[in-house]
Structure formats: C-alpha cells, structure tokens
Design a protein around this nucleic acid. Structure first.
Lengths: 334, 334
DNA sequence: TGCTTGCTTGAAAGCGGTTTCACGTGTAAG
DNA sequence: CTTACACGTGAAACCGCTTTCAAGCAAGCA
C-alpha cells in the first residue's frame, strides 16, 4: 500500500509514545532512549510509515530539494553534467528539481525564480550568462553554485573548467606535431568559454613564436555548420593551413565534413583537434583527437560543493582541467 | 527581497479581509467580489507575496510536481525527450523532479519510490524495463505515463514510437535504391526497440522477396563499437553486402568508421542508414541518411497526457512515427 | 410583508510534521 | 540529606495555507 496515510500520530499510538518522541527518532535518534527508539522503529516498519515531506518542510523550512538551472543548448556537455548531478545527488538526502534557462537571459532569471518559489534549499546553475548582481539577488535567499562558468566579481563557488588551458593544450599539441599554419574555428564570440579557448590558442602560438594570422581565425558558434563555413571561407580566400583547432568537437566535425567534400585528406593533409570528446568523436573517420571536458567530475564537484555549503561549511571554487585524448586526426607535418 | 516571509495573514490584514478570502482569490478568484479581489491583489503586489508551496501542498494534497524517471544511458534520444519535457512543463503549473533509473531494474524501482516519497502528482517514465505489475504497484498511487515504450498488458498511457515501421522504412529505402544484400546491425537484443527494428527489417526484406541471410544480421548493442565489430565480422567471413541498416546512428557511425579503415567508400561501395538523426549525423562524411525519432514531439505528448489525466480527463496512448531524412550515405546500387 | 434562496464572508478546524517548554527522574555535587 | 543539573519525555504551540461550516445579507417570490 503506497498511499501512506500512516501519520506520525499513528506510530506514536502504536509505540505508546508521543508524537514528539516519534519526531525525535526521525531527526535526532540519539536523544531518545534505546528502548523507545526501537519500539518506534518497529511500529514504523509494521505500519509502513513514510513521513510527509510537505509537513516536514513546512515545519522546519527545508525542502531537501536542490534546483538545477539547465540551458537548452544542443551540446552534450551540459547534458552530461546534468546527468552527473542527478547521479551524485542520489547519494544524498536531496532531490534535484529542474528548470530551464533556455540560454536566454530573461528565461534564466525566470527559471531561478521558479526554483526559489519552490523553496529549493540551494541552486546549481549550469552555464548561462547571469551577471554577478543578478546572481546576488538570488544568492541571499539560498546558496548558489555555478557550474561551467567562472565569474569574476562574485565570491560564490564556481565549478569551472580551464578553457584557456584547453585551448592552449589543443594548439600546443598541433605545434608539437610540427604544424605552423594552424587555423582556428572559434565558438560563439559572446560566450566566455569561446573567448578563453581562443585566448589559449593565441597564447600557444605566441609562445612558439608563430605569428598569428587573423584570417585563419574564423568566428564560429559551436555548431557544426560553423566548421564547414570556416573551411569554405579559408579555401575560397586561398589561405593555406595544415591544421585546425576547432573550439568544440561539433565544429571539428563540420571542418572534417567540409574537407572531405573537397577531397582533402585528414590527417594526411590537414590535422584537426577539437574539444569535448563526445561519444561520436571516437567514431569519426578518422577518430578525432580532442580534449575531454571533465563533465562527470564537474557534476560531482557541484553536488559536493552544494552539500558542504548546506551543511554549514565553506568550500572553494574549483577549476578543472581538460584531458588531451590523442587519436588519429593529427599527423606530424611532413 | 526574496526571503518572502509575507504570509497570507499579512495580506489579509493589509487588505482588510480574512485569510479565507485571500486563499480564495488565490484558488477560485471568481467566488470573491470584484472589489475585495482587487484589494487583495493590490496587497499581494505591494508586499511581494509568494505563497508557501509546502503549506499549500500540505493542505490540499497536491505537490504540483511531476516526477520523471530517466535512464542513464548514453543515448541522446532520452536526453532530448527529457529536455522537451522540461520545456513543455514550463507552460504548466507543474515542475519536473528527476530521479535516475540508471537503466537497471532495481534502480528504476528505487527511483520511482523516491519520487513517490516526494509526493509527486504523477510520474513519467522514460524507457526502462519495468513490468506491468511493477508499474501497477506505483500506478494506483499516482498516474503514470510511459514514454518511448509500449507495454502490452497494461492499459495506462504510453507515448511510443513505431520501431517496426522505422526498421521497415529504413530497410525499404535501401531496397528502393536497388540494394539486395542488406546487412543489419541490431540494437541490444534484450531491448524491445531493437527487436522491433529488426522485425521491420525482416518485414521489408520479406515483402520484397529478398531471402534473409542470418549471417548478415549482427547482434549489436546500440553502441558505436558494435558497428565496427559488425563490419569486421562480415568482412572476415567474406560476406558481401552493398548496404547496411544500423539500428541507430551510433552504430552507423561505427560501421562507417570500420569501412573507412578498409578503404571501402561510402556510399559508392556501401550504403548506410541509421536511426535517430543525431546532430552529428548531418556532419558525418558523408552526411548520414537516417530516420529521425520524434523526441520533441514525444516529450510534448507525454506532458500533455499527464496534464490531461491530472485534470481528470482521459487520454489515449499514442504511437508516433519516425521521419526518413535522406542525405548522402545511400546511393543507387549500380 | 414574510419567507426562502443564493451568494459572499470570516472563524476555526485541519493537513502532518517540528520544536519549545515545563515537568518529572536519576545522578552528581555540596 | 539537600541542591543542582542533565536528560528523557509529553503537551501544546506553531509552520502557512485550504476548506468546511455557519452566519449575514440582499434579492426573489408568494
């Protein structure tokens, strides 16, 4: 019988104690003598008692729910993080409740308010573009942690990933393979991650004393089509390049497709590296060399951060590192 | 000020009415005279009133929350449906709360119980493998709708997709292009969707009077690796084929990779069709012909079904159809 | 004019827990 | 042998909203 109409009062009667005592074994068992505690537990089992969460929350002010603001973007990166959060949360007393930011400023605010209305104990925001001020508005209601985003000017905790380093390492990998004419398809220029990856790209080039050809930097948007446009554009303008660093794997796929349309061989004529390590990346012909984003670890870290904050302790922001996955889309330059 | 400590009583005082009246304008505005209703509304705005959901739920028994059981499987299909559900739910009074079934039987039951403990008003189950009996156990607590799954022997509502038709149409497309030796990489044989897709494959072949070569049917698992194994296995055994129908796009990617490793051209020498229409499918060299699963529509349908049930009306199960997306991975057989 | 009917409204009783507070008890300290 | 103190416990207040119930009142009807 799931329709648990068994209340704390029933248990109290059955166990021969008061409601207060039953409540105590529920919340602070050690304050009740062994014998009564056992009696209560037995009664609970026998009657199949399930505490009513609403009554509980109403009385103590905690919902044991944490809100997640997702972004309705087609990238698997956020999905992976979300999944990881769901998983990690299973080990805790908290349940996740979702609200979608749709990658729009207003929608994101609305999403947070929805969650706040539902009295979540904390909120985790995946990406998005809230300003510190706006965040702060919500923050004094409940603790917030930002994932996949670092925000200067606010001292809350962020679980970020080092995009500059990823851009740097991807490019460095190409340089180490002897490439000099390295093109870059950027992500959405209005997206912080994109500019950081490009920053890493420039840094690696500068460090290797390779002059930067601005014409080889194509402003993309993280979508596949950007990759094909980039290649067409370079080819059309007669730019030559032996390698391309795409801001994400999806763009890299686009690059690869465009090259294949022109019968340009990968990696023999042009090498490619992306960022993300999507499942499909290992299946591209040839399998794509890329940088794996630690989505799972980030989800776990976010949950950990939230739970420690909720338990009254302090936590630090963390900046995670991507991992270079070497496959077959890069060859030494001949 | 978000820490809304403004209660219904404060509003009542401000508006010069009783708590009961305030509650009425909240729930059944028409039963209150225009003038008082306005006074209450004004008071609410001035004081920034946000009703306490717990108190509400405790009093009326509804949580305005609907539980979603997800499956922690790597496929984007479920993710898309989930996202679509989140989106659709935004238009309603309900908020989604998630619990992961991890594609394991016990975990799935646990997930449902978690949701039930939290007094969800209904639950939507994505895929999974619950039996009708188990479902029924939960079902008499709250309404349930199953998505991406048809279950014989239970009369609840299912939002399914016609897997037999998808398998049939994919195969038919190949047959129509003149192919006869059509191989098939199946999905996980223990997965109902997989067997239905294969059923469609067999049906199309039978209908065209093409004898079925069991050796050309490779038992896969929906993962990419299965596709490469399938090709290796066929080639090793000297089987010849001019086309392959992969149970999903991921497998198709594997097939494509393996072929490319053997320098077998797609689609010139071998044609491929998959199922899913992932974002990456359009970017494969060559872009993959596939069958698009109506994930968004299914999510919407699920939400619609749930809300109508919750509003006391009846709904029917629906069986959706996939859509053939013709791209460049299939050529006429010469 | 008298009585019924229907509508609006407030008081109060829940919903099912948690928590304060005061009241024994048993034990340690004076 | 008191006085004190900690501890376990139950009664009752409370969390904030919904809903029943009965009362008040205006309109409808004979």
């Amino acid at each position: 019988m799931r329709t648990s109409k068994v209340t704390i009062e029933d248990i109290a009667g059955r166990a021969g104690v008061s409601k207060a005592t039953v409540s105590r074994v529920l919340n602070r068992p050690t304050t009740v003598t062994e014998v009564k505690r056992e009696a209560v537990k037995v009664a609970m089992n026998e009657m199949g008692f399930k505490p009513n969460q609403f009554a509980r929350s109403l009385a103590n002010g905690h919902s044991n729910t944490i809100g997640i603001v997702t972004q309705n973007i087609g990238t698997s990166f956020y999905d992976s993080i979300a999944r990881s959060i769901i998983q990690s949360l299973r080990q805790t007393q908290y349940a996740p409740i979702f609200s979608d930011g749709m990658y729009e400023h207003d929608a994101e605010n609305a999403a947070i308010n929805t969650l706040l209305d539902r009295q979540v104990d904390a909120v985790i925001v995946l990406g998005g573009d809230l300003t510190p001020d706006e965040i702060h508005g919500g923050e004094d209601a409940v603790p917030m942690v930002m994932v996949a985003r670092q925000i200067e000017g606010w001292n809350g905790v962020c679980i970020g990933v080092d995009n500059v380093a990823m851009g740097y390492n991807a490019t460095k990998h190409l340089i180490d393979a002897g490439h000099v004419q390295i093109a870059h398809v950027t992500g959405n220029p209005s997206h912080e991650d994109a500019v950081n990856r490009e920053k890493g790209y420039r840094k690696a080039l500068a460090e290797a004393n390779i002059p930067i050809d601005e014409d080889l930097i194509f402003p993309g948007n993280f979508y596949g089509q950007a990759g094909v446009l980039a290649v067409e554009s370079w080819l059309m303008r007669g730019k030559s390049f032996s390698a391309v660093f795409a801001a994400n794997d999806l763009s890299a796929f686009g690059v690869r497709l465009a090259l294949s349309r022109r019968n340009i061989r990968v990696p023999d004529e042009v090498s490619i590296v992306g960022i993300d390590d999507k499942i499909e990346s290992a299946l591209m012909p040839p399998p794509l060399t890329t940088i794996r984003q630690p989505a799972d670890a980030m989800g776990e870290a976010a949950v950990k951060a939230v739970t420690t904050i909720l338990s009254g302790k302090k936590t630090e922001s963390v900046l995670m590192q991507g991992e270079l996955i070497v496959r077959e889309s890069v060859s030494r330059r001949h």
